[in-house]
Write a protein that binds this DNA or RNA. Structure first.
Length: 571
DNA sequence: GCCGTTTTCGGCCCGACTGTTTTCAGTCG
């Protein structure tokens, strides 16, 4: 749990140094912060291996930052940081988070008007003090006032599951135009990050201006934030920002690569290009001003001596190195998925019947589905007591006769605070597939919380651990867990970890999936659907599995029905 | 402050848009 705190500190150090007009260091601190943020292992674990030396192996971390990490691990403080913080007013770096204000202009505002926070900024703008400054005119003041309204509303990133359909809608609208040739989403959305800052769209056209007009007039648009000849930015009605960029056909691949990012991935690619005497930008790869390639992303990677890599991998977490060694994973895809192991019905807190869920799953082309209603302790969700569960199982067996799709009888069983399960073993024996979840006592200390889950995983009837960390994105912190220990136990006991596809959950999350995979764990990608519509969340879970470098062989519900029956010993 | 198959010193991604501007700096992604 040190990584996020350290990343935050290093980002702030970067901001403070930038305010002080220190050159280059801010970039170094940001690079290190980003690397630490994306680690799949806690820095304390890395430090345990061989101290400062192993810390320096983190890309972007050198001697000085490694020492600061050590200091933090030992004392929970970093003296340089405390000192830097004291040298500026408390909230000053908050100004840099404001759209349109960077270090330079924030600094001017502070020096000339003593503006130290967003609150001060709002006050000064309302009193028209800003437009009186020599280097700030009326337009800036207006933009600040507009920006404040937005700043209050939308400090949170949007869930992937919400942004994706909105973006698809925008793209479908634009596709209708004869002026739009090729079009795609780019950015973090194309990489299928769990949350999205803004929607990036890339298109090709011989008439970019027409596309700008079209885009800024779409029905979802609330306000135009910028409109140029090849690039525009709008604010959507749901307060998300959407950007479009239009280029020529011959640059589509290069631009798509460029705008998909992420930033660190791109910087590394450009480094590779430079070493080969090439220049890489959004228009293509060139040598001495002469265009070489850029029509497709495949061309771009090939020219750089790399294999094509799926967007979900492009986070500069080893994919470029893997590509150079021809060791990129062949990622699992939605069409590999043969069934869903986690769905609810009206018997507990779902909205549809067993028949409706089974029939919807059959329509998706699945071979099997597992009905997993809640166990008795989740009384809020009408969890089933033993007698009701036995009746439920009987009902499932009876309904099977009406369906081609295999309906497994399962249950989402509570792991009680002491690690025992909500049903006794005699009941578990009667279920085809046993999956277990934590639904209470979220605040336990790491040791207790970890032991609670490990005890459940050691039950020989348990097959799957659902939403392992129990986080809700933007809402609830994950359980405090020693995940290394849990992954180790899961792997040794051949227990399956769920990748929960619900937009709010996406749990396990990408970096932990990758880590668990290294421990040899297998995964089930499930929707936790409470209605037939939500079965479609599967693509979100698959995208996170892909971000965790999973191949078909890592995913249990990519197995055929026969293989599943063999795996779970179901007769 | 970091980094190295051009380098242990001297570089550090690069281009669009806005407005502070009329030839350029600041900010963003």
């Amino acid at each position: 749990m040190n990584n996020l705190e350290l990343a935050r500190i290093f980002y702030e150090i970067a901001d403070i140094l930038e305010m002080k007009e220190v050159e280059w260091k801010p970039r170094a601190y940001r690079k290190a912060a980003q690397a630490i943020e994306n680690l799949s292992e806690d820095v304390s674990e890395i430090y345990k291996k061989s101290g400062i030396k192993s810390l320096e192996e983190i890309p972007g971390v050198g001697e000085s930052i490694a020492e600061k990490i050590e200091e933090f691990l030992k004392t929970k403080h970093i003296k340089t940081y405390e000192k830097l913080k004291r040298s500026l007013p408390k909230h000053l770096t908050e100004l840099m988070e404001f759209q349109g204000l960077g270090a330079k202009r924030a600094n001017i505002l502070y020096k000339k008007l003593k503006i130290k926070s967003i609150k001060d900024l709002e006050k000064a703008a309302k009193q028209h003090k800003i437009s009186k400054l020599q280097s700030f005119k009326i337009k800036t003041e207006e933009n600040i006032l507009k920006g404040i309204e937005l700043f209050k509303k939308s400090s949170q990133r949007t869930l992937l599951g919400i942004a994706l359909p909105i973006a698809n809608n925008l793209i479908n609208e634009l596709k209708k135009s004869k002026y739009v040739n090729k079009i795609s989403v780019a950015g973090s959305l194309r990489r299928r990050a769990e949350t999205i800052g803004d929607i990036d769209i890339l298109a090709t056209s011989s008439q970019p201006q027409k596309v700008m007009d079209l885009f800024t007039a779409l029905p979802d648009v609330k306000r135009i934030l910028a409109k140029g000849s090849t690039k525009s930015i709008v604010l959507l009605k749901n307060n998300m920002q959407a950007d479009i960029r239009v280029i020529e056909d011959k640059s589509f691949g290069a631009a798509l690569q460029y705008f998909t990012g992420n930033k660190e991935h791109n910087i590394k690619l450009r480094g590779i290009a430079i070493k080969k005497g090439l220049k890489l930008n959004e228009y293509g790869i060139s040598k001495k001003e002469k265009y070489i390639s850029g029509k497709t992303e495949e061309d771009v990677y090939k020219t750089l001596g790399l294999n094509y890599m799926d967007p979900e991998l492009r986070e500069n977490t080893g994919e470029i190195e893997a590509s150079l060694k021809n060791k990129l994973p062949k990622l699992v895809s939605l069409k590999d998925i043969q069934g869903d192991f986690h769905v609810h019905t009206i018997e507990s807190d779902g909205n549809n019947t067993i028949e409706e869920m089974a029939s919807a799953a059959q329509k998706l082309g699945y071979e099997y589905i597992c009905i997993t209603d809640h166990s008795k302790s989740t009384y809020i969700a009408h969890g089933l007591k033993e007698d009701r569960l036995l009746g439920h199982i009987k009902n499932i067996r009876k309904l099977q006769k009406k369906f081609k799709i295999k309906i497994f009888a399962g249950s989402e069983i509570d792991i009680l605070p002491d690690g025992t399960l909500d049903y006794p073993d005699e009941i578990l024996k009667k279920l085809d597939i046993v999956s277990v979840s934590v639904h209470s006592n979220f605040k336990k200390q790491e040791k207790d919380a970890t032991n609670r889950i490990i005890k459940a995983l050691e039950n020989k009837y348990v097959h799957i651990l659902n939403h392992p960390t129990n986080r809700l994105i933007n809402e609830r912190e994950p359980l405090s867990l020693d995940l290394d220990k849990i992954f180790k136990v899961a792997s040794e006991n051949k227990k399956i970890l769920e990748i929960n596809s619900h937009p709010n959950r996406l749990d396990l999350k990408d970096v932990y999936i990758k880590k668990a995979k290294e421990y040899g764990c297998k995964f089930s990608i499930s929707t936790d659907a409470h209605s037939t519509n939500s079965l479609r969340y599967m693509e979100l879970g698959v995208s996170q599995a892909r971000r965790g470098w999973c191949e078909k062989k890592d995913i249990v519900n990519a197995l055929s029905l026969k293989e599943i029956e063999k795996l779970f010993n179901i007769k």
